[in-house]
Amino acid sequence: MPVVNLTDRIERAIVARENLFDERHQAGLRLFNGFLEGEPKIVIDVYATTAVVHNYAEPAKAGEALVEQVVAWLPTRLPWLESILVKTRNTDDETAQNGVLRYGEKLASRVREHGVWYALDLTMNRDSSLYLDTRNLREWILANLADKTVLNTFAYTGSLGVAAVAAGAKRVVQTDRNRRFLNVGKTSHTLNGFPINKADFQTEDFWLQINKFKRKEELFDCVIVDPPMFAATAHGVVDLAQNYTKVLNRVRPLMEHNGTIIAINNALFLSGAEYIELLEKICADGYVTIDQFIDIGQDFTGYADTRVGKAVTNPAPFNHSTKIAVLKTRRRGF
């Protein structure tokens, strides 16, 4: 059986993703998902004219030769690339985690998706400030949240809320514990010419913030719930595998009648079937129903002619470990 080297695998991945590239090189996409496309030490994302190479090797040195191979080869294959940033996952070096520029001089500062600009700060933390796997969700938001009031919890840099503003939502409130993250969302507003209402960017602990909304009797047509895998504060714990139902139940009193909860769970080791079990617990009282699932793009799942690996857990009925469910809610008394 012939040996397939890394650049051959990446070449195959590029060809499969040709329809995701745009002429102006403003888009964002996962260029190569090594976990499912043949080399689990390497993942490559593209943000406009910057490639971000993630070294997942453990120890990190075991992936350095592969990283060097990618950094040397990729600009010859995609000559419009202006820079390559390398992020190292398994290290205690925060700078290496956040990213080291290995090619070029300037990192991309924005991407354009479905006609909307999203600001970037690619070295802000070990992630890259915009989660590309929720692209299809942003498209759904654009199509469905016009004239709605929206609360985006665990907003991070606010891309889902920015999509809601672009959709024509009546009001969008973005909440996160980290002001720096929300400031990226404000930059996205500026890029699109959207007004910035400071009161709609709220820096607060999730548990405290929800209680404030309850006391004010504020209600929303749509609440987006996209928590981190695990987070603990003095006021509560988020654990996607253990207490996700508690998080969802906490936002239910904020829902308008015939409201929508967008429930996102990206716990890698939580199977799709297990996630459905969690959601069915929420639905047991008859006031919440599962309306639909939103798939993740094939650049994350791999294509029929590029995929050689299997997911750690079976995500079915979802197509990826980032599991997105749209829930419909009713209020008592209606």
Score class of each variant (00 low, 15 high):
Asn266Met: 11
Thr245Ala: 14
Met255Phe: 00
Pro253Lys: 01
Ala273Ser: 12
Gly236Ser: 04
Ala232His: 10
Ala241Asn: 05
Asp226Cys: 03
Asp239Gln: 05
Asp239Gly: 01
Tyr244Gly: 04
Val288Asp: 04
Tyr287Leu: 15
Ala234Pro: 13
Glu256Gly: 01
Lys246Trp: 09
Ser271Lys: 10
Ile261Cys: 01
Leu240Asn: 11
Ala273Phe: 07
His235Glu: 10
His257Cys: 06
Cys283Pro: 06
Ala232Phe: 07
Leu254Gln: 13
Val247Gln: 01
Arg250Glu: 05
Ala241Phe: 08
Asp285His: 08
Leu270Ser: 01
Ala284Gly: 10
Ala232Glu: 08
Glu274Gly: 15
Glu280Thr: 10
Ala284Arg: 14
Asp285Arg: 14
Leu278Gly: 08
Glu274Arg: 13
Thr245Leu: 15
Leu268Trp: 04
Gly272Phe: 11
Tyr287Trp: 14
Ala232Tyr: 03
Tyr287Ser: 08
Ala231Asn: 13
Leu248Phe: 01
Asp226Tyr: 03
Leu240Ser: 04
Lys246Asp: 14
Lys246Tyr: 13
Met229Tyr: 11
Gly236His: 08
Thr260Phe: 13
Glu277His: 14
Leu254Arg: 04
Leu254Asp: 10
Ala267Asn: 12
Leu270Trp: 09
Thr245Lys: 14
Ala232Gly: 07
Val247Met: 08
Val247Leu: 07
Gly236Thr: 07
Tyr275Met: 06
Ala284His: 12
Leu270Gln: 05
Asn243Asp: 01
Val237Ser: 00
Asn258Gly: 05
Phe230Tyr: 10
Ala234Lys: 15
Gly236Phe: 05
Val237Cys: 00
Ala284Val: 08
Ser271Ala: 14
His235Asn: 12
Asn249Tyr: 00
Thr245Pro: 02
Ala273Lys: 15
Thr260Cys: 05
Ala284Pro: 13
Val238Met: 15
Leu279Trp: 06
Val247Cys: 07
Gly272Asn: 11
Leu240Glu: 09
Tyr287Gln: 15
Asn266Pro: 11
Gly259Met: 05
Ile264Phe: 03
His235Arg: 06
Cys283Tyr: 07
Leu278Met: 15
Leu268Thr: 15
Arg250Leu: 06
Glu280Ser: 12
Val237Pro: 03
Leu248Gln: 00
Gln242Lys: 08
Ala241Arg: 07
Gly272Glu: 07
Pro253Gly: 01
Ala263Ile: 08
Leu248Glu: 00
Leu270Cys: 04
Thr260Asp: 05
Thr260Tyr: 00
Asn249Thr: 00
Ala263Pro: 03
Val238Thr: 10
Arg252Asp: 06
Asn266Tyr: 13
Lys281Glu: 11
Leu248Ser: 03
Pro253Leu: 04
Tyr275Glu: 02
Val247Arg: 02
Gly286Arg: 02
Val288Trp: 13
Asn265Ser: 02
Leu254Asn: 05
Ile262Ala: 01
Ile261Asp: 03
Leu240Phe: 02
Gly286Met: 07
Thr245Phe: 13
Leu270Arg: 02
Cys283Gly: 09
